[in-house]
Every structure is written in C-alpha cells, then in structure tokens.
C-alpha cells in the first residue's frame, strides 16, 4: 500500500516562500496498491494527482466531511468532466440533506460555474455512517468522530497493513488530556494498532486553548491518541495555515524534546510518500 500526501494544510490553502517545504495545498491523499487506488478528501491537493493515475476510468473519492478545505479541489478533479469516467464520491450521511444535495450547494452557480448534476461523468454518490466495506481491494472502516458537523474517519486495511486517516478531530473538547479508557476515545476503533495514523495536529497547546470547540487537535492530543491506540507511526497533519516551515519545525522539536514516545512521529509534508 502506497500513501501519497498530496495536500497537508488545514483550513485554507497557502502559497508563500516560508511554507514551501511542508506545502500549502489542503487535504488530499492518494492510497494505492497495484492497479487499485482511492483518494481521501478532495482539498486543493487533488490537483497534484499524477496524470498516469488520472487516466484510470473508475475513481473513488472518500470525503471525511464537507468543510471547504476538504472539498475545494473537487470541482477541479478532471475525471468529473470526462464522459467516459465513472466517479464515486463517498461521504458522511447527515440527518437532513442528502450528501449529493450538500455537495451541490458548493458545486453549483453562483459558487461554481457548473452544477454537480450536470457533470458528464457517470457520477455515483454514496453516504456512509459507521460501516465496513471493501472497495478497490481495500477493506475500509468508517466511524463518526468528534468534529463539528457530520464527520467520519477512515481505517484502510490492505492485507496485513492498515492506516487510519483522521484529518480533523478534537478527541476531547476543552481538555488537553484524553480519557484513559479506550471505550471513551473518539476514533479509537479506527486507530487501534494501526501501522500508520495520519491525524490532525493543527494547534500548539497554547493555541488549542484559544480554539476549544473548533474541532481540531493539538500535537499532544494526536500523540496521546496514537499512544492510547497503539498506533505504530504517527504523521501530524492539517497544519495551521499561519504556521511557516520554521514555526512547524520549532513546534515539533519543542514537543518531541519534552516527550519520549516509543513510536515514530513526523510532520506531514506535501509530496511525502509512505510505503506500508
């Protein structure tokens, strides 16, 4: 299983000299194994998809939620406009509007020149709750997690290897600590003993305390959740758009120096590839 981080920035895309190393595109991850491929989230990073991959005719985009930074690239996903393509969009169910209708709010005039209902591809929209299914050779688990609005995380199993993707997550609202009991941990079933956890770490501890309830984690939240779940490798994701490369390095080094986690922790970088 290959994991290609196409966009790692949270909230909104950025482009400046001070943030070139970690990148400025918003969340999008390509997960592939042999000829199979799925795409996690459709932030602006989706435009970084390699052309060889986009020649495929069947595409699966799995959305964790519909906040703008996770769907902003959807309208620029070329297969949507290819009449010979089959595009499947998967995302969280809501108690009210359908997933299609919620996506259509963004992908329709005046916010977008075309309407989602008029795209020429063969489009399928699938709603997800807490589920388990196989797709493109991957076994996929979904669970609702703690984040404002309908939001799910993914666990993707490929043979013996597993990765969890929880890009936007506030496991404990208003507290820097998490519950000790696994039964009470948002996201636990997704991360439990996974080989790789890609997790929200938007804030420093100080900034988290000023952003309680916004739905994001501090670096400490992410590390403590990974530790509690027995994750074997943690990649810190959804970087704050105000954090330059230098600030990210500084925050990370400060955190790591004061802790002794037994699993590798690193900052997600646009263009990073991970083999599992």
């Amino acid at each position: 299983m290959k994991i290609n981080l196409l966009g790692t920035r949270g909230s909104h895309p950025i482009s400046n000299q001070e943030s070139v190393y970690y990148g400025g595109s918003t969340p999008c991850i390509q997960v592939s194994s042999g000829q199979h491929q799925i795409i996690l989230d459709a932030g602006t990073g989706i435009v970084n998809l390699r052309s060889s991959r986009s020649e495929k005719k069947e595409h699966h985009i799995l959305l964790t939620h519909l906040h703008m930074d996770h769907i902003q690239g959807l309208g620029f996903f070329e297969p949507l406009f290819d009449s010979e393509s089959e595009v499947h969009i998967w995302g969280p169910v809501s108690s009210q509007d359908s997933l299609f209708d919620r996506l259509q709010r963004f992908l329709s005039p005046p916010l977008f020149p075309l309407s989602l209902r008029d795209v020429p591809c063969d489009l399928h929209v699938h709603e997800l709750a807490d589920e388990k299914f196989t797709l493109q050779g991957f076994t996929i688990f979904t669970r609702f997690i703690s984040h404002p609005g309908p939001t799910i995380g993914f666990r993707i199993q490929n043979g013996e290897k597993s990765m969890a993707y929880i890009p936007d997550h506030e496991p404990m609202i208003g507290s820097l600590d998490i519950y000790a009991d696994a039964n009470w941990l948002s996201g636990y079933d997704l991360c439990n003993n996974c080989d790789l956890l890609i997790h929200d770490a938007q804030y420093s501890t100080e900034k988290y305390l000023k952003r309680v309830g916004w739905g994001h984690s501090s670096i400490k939240h992410a590390a403590e959740l990974a530790k509690a779940c027995g994750a074997k490798h943690l990649v810190l994701f959804h970087h704050d758009p105000s954090h330059t490369d230098e600030m990210l390095n500084s925050l990370f080094e400060k955190f790591i120096d004061g802790n002794d986690y037994t699993f590798p922790i690193e900052l997600a970088r646009e263009g990073m590839e991970i083999d599992l």
Partner: peptide, 20 residues
C-alpha cells in the same frame, strides 16, 4: 467493486455517547 461486509463489533462507544 464495492462489497458491504458484516457489521464490525466496535470497542469504543458511538460518538454520540462519547460526546454525551
């Protein structure tokens, strides 16, 4: 190909219970 599998037995409570 899309195949729906049997419901998994979860260890953690539903998110609505956790948030409660």
């Amino acid at each position: 190909m899309i195949v729906t599998l049997n419901t998994r037995r979860y260890m953690a409570h539903d998110i609505e219970i956790i948030l409660s």
